[in-house]
Amino acid sequence: MKDEIVKIKGSKNGLQMSFSPTASFPEIVQTIREKLSSGSAFFLKGTTVQIPREPFTDEERETLRKLFYSHGLICQSVRQQASNPQPASSNPAPAASNPQQPAENVQQMVVIDRTLRGGQEVRTQSSVLVCGNVNPGAQIIAGGSIDIRGTCRGIVHAGALGDTKAFIVADHLMPTQIRIANLIARSPDPSPAAAYAEKTKRAERASIKDGQIVIEPIER
């Protein structure tokens, strides 16, 4: 069987892609496009994809980044180092203590530096920090906790993998639905008098207490 052009490996940081050194750039783009449009559950929106920095030019990396972006994936280019170790002679440090090891255990956080608009979705196993608003119709599903530096009006699910200690914090916490682990709470039905829900005054934090979702004001 011929060497696969694109190899995909799941990791803590998202999906790691490696490419056959014999494949041409158009071949690579074509293969990725096919894989992305095959609609595999692998490529959830908001997933980080890591591609090696090395064989590509700046323009090629930009092309790949746009391709992933159009499918809702975030592309990072990384220097290859751990995967193909250089001969030890070039590095005088003792081989026993691998500096990569402790970094692996640090908890990951996805940072979203924009407003999530209606119809946009972030799914991740880690925690999420949003520097912007979460608008009605947007969704965040996180394995960890969720921190929103702005107004939250969408659907937020923290601890989606079962972590009942996960919490949700927002400057203005007024979501359509709030879910933590396997519990759900929804916003109160709007009073018929108000055309539009008023903004909450203080930052709030939602967490599970005594088997139900509790929202309490916090300072920050």
């Binding site: 972006y69 159009s70 608009r117 209606g118 119809g119 946009q120 608008n135 119709g137």
Partner: peptide, 12 residues
């Protein structure tokens, strides 16, 4: 709501 979605699509 729809304008919000459209703005997201435009950004995409």
């Amino acid at each position: 709501r729809d304008a919000d979605k459209i703005i997201g699509e435009l950004a995409r």
